[in-house]
Design a protein around this nucleic acid. Structure first.
Lengths: 217, 217, 217, 217
DNA sequence: GATGAATGAGTATTCATTCAT
DNA sequence: AATGAATGAATACTCATTCAT
């Protein structure tokens, strides 16, 4: 500006990426130290801008968190719809695929980070939990239940309660990740997500009890 | 009392129950507003004592939280041991009893409150998560796995992975509570914990798939 | 009390020594941590009594400090008077004796402790400095000046200004101790108080300059 | 100013002199009430800024004190070196000049204030005494000793112990100031620093005793 | 006399947010 | 658009002192 023919600008269009850079910085810091122990100044510094600049893009610190959640959430809703369409093929294979996808996706700390933050802040900022719920669960849960409901209707699986069965399907994965990510509890030899999925599928398919007993329960 | 026209004694001496009263106050506030948004002054006020008095019993705010965890945790470890002793009787009945116990216990907001707080603070105060893990999970998880291992050895259930199967058993309950307590997601008609337990047991017993398919998986 | 014939009491007259025990405890702590960083509770604990008991003997924390000063100060005034009486004998020997006495007395940390504390607190509690001044300096300085004045009158020393000469006599010792006690500056090989005294006396007696010059100044 | 009818700008930007203004305010308050009885809020208020602004320039209250010491100390080290260079000329005149400089410099309450504060805080914050020692004494004392040593070597003064003689030279001035500044003890008719210097020089030059005796000591 | 539980005023430090430049 | 100096409210913790027992 002061020097019109200076070769400096390189690419000055950076500005449009600012919000994303800020969200990246914020995510890293929130994961490391938690939302309330991360200062706005730190976020700005890590993103390489001034504190004031952050307020150009986000009206408040909480808005940054909301932006983070929003960004993480949008792809999920889309995939949920896709899943529903594929599910008709081989159910058992689909199930394995689904659990594996969920498990590996959430197993990636980058991905699990946002729900973890949401859980943390839910008490204090219910509107964030609310937003997450609307964006994620209100899409994913009915979609999942619908898949199950259809499978029941087609006689592919026994007549179970779709909503509750969804919890039976996914709950173990969630618990596994909670134990690992929050309490640092891992089976010997690492996260072992595949071991969990295989064992869980085995139970889902064959039940817990020996064959002779499985019909008179 | 001794002096009927004295204006409320300034010092209500040696309450003996002070620590517990303080923990009660703290629990209520932590649940409502979260740990870091609750001030020491508020805790003291709610417990009806001065700020200074709180520091007579707890050396720091974090120590209050630790006290809370400790208090909530001790009964759990005890029950876990009891469970292991009963488990030999009718496994299927035991299973239903167990899940119901877990579900109703954790379904009580007073009880679920502490783990919820722990999850919130885990990122920032790992020593709290650590304490909880040692006091709860290090007892409960091996105990549960042991029960399953024994049942397998006795041929009462199919040869499954004990550690992972534990997650398959309990995970759905945990997920159900997470959805309900943190995201406010409940099936129509309330928490429906029994519906969850029944459906889950049905799947565990009979598997997910129709009888004809359940043997050739 | 509960057991009237218990042989416990040993000697219950301790009570009369309480104030002194408290002062001992306070002195040790004030020296170690300074007046304002020492809590009343610590003093009481170190003296083996309760906080309340301390307030039975001293109306406030500052009163403890005052008591300390008072106790340290009383012997000084007495000795000052004694010194004046001896001084007539051999002046030069007296001088050496005096400096040595002052130096070794103040060189004892236990003794220097009180003036050190007084210096520390003088700004904040001028009444303590005032007390010290009245009790110590208002006795010692005139006494010292009087000795010098008499010596001048008797022609034993040159006609010097008595008040100022007193500073020339004692100042080096004070400075030596300040450097050592407060800034930790000591000549190689320890405090070397005798080296200081000898050198100082040499200068006082022979002047600083070579003999040939010492008369035409 | 630029906008005459605007109601005092909320932010008086970039004072550039802020640190110095804060140090001035702090010095005044520390002198008046002592370090630990001065609150950060008071310093800020006196300097005309907010509490937060102070923390923009100093990371802690103690850092303010350190800044104060540092600021007071830098000129001293410089002068000490200058003195050494002049000292070769007329020793006796130099001595008078030196003592007068020291005396009048330290006689200015603004200058003596910092060492006084340092002495006060030395017990509690040894790192401050340490800093002062390194910045002042480690320069000044060796420099002074060197001057004396050289004078001895050149036969200009009698063979005295340089380190100790330094205390004999400066100690009386220090003691004089201590008595005056801390205990409020002044000779009739004011501080009388010149009287002290003259009398002290007289003793240094001619010794304390009459001429006839001064050679057979 | 003696105790120690209780009080509550006092204070350093942090940090989201504003706004003159 | 961008800066960063300035604000000031908020908060954990300390400790001299009191007083019911």
């Amino acid at each position: 500006m002061a020097d019109p023919d200076s070769p400096e600008p390189k690419f000055r269009r950076r500005a449009e990426h600012r919000p994303d850079e800020l969200l990246d910085a914020a995510l890293a810091l929130f994961v490391e130290k938690g939302y309330s122990h991360t200062s706005v100044a730190e976020i700005a510094r890590k993103a390489g801008v001034s504190k004031g600049a952050l307020y150009l893009y986000f009206p408040s610190k909480q808005a940054v968190l909301e932006g983070l959640v929003r960004r993480a959430v949008s792809p999920i809703a889309i995939r949920a719809q896709e899943a529903i369409d594929i599910a008709d093929a081989d159910l058992r294979a689909t199930l394995r695929a689904l659990l594996t996808v969920i498990a590996t996706a959430l197993g990636d700390p980058k991905v699990f980070a946002v729900p973890k933050i949401v859980i943390r802040e839910a008490v204090v900022a219910p509107e964030i939990a609310e937003m997450y719920r609307r964006a994620v669960f209100d899409n994913v849960l009915p979609a999942g239940a619908a898949i199950i409901r259809r499978a029941v209707a087609q006689g592919k699986i026994r007549p179970v309660d779709p909503e509750m069965t969804l919890r039976s399907l996914v709950g173990p994965v969630i618990m596994h990740l909670l134990l690992s990510e929050i309490f640092g509890i891992e089976p010997e030899g690492g996260l072992a997500l595949d071991r969990l999925v295989e064992n869980h599928l085995d139970i889902l398919v064959n039940g817990l009890f020996p064959a002779t007993e499985s019909h008179d329960a």
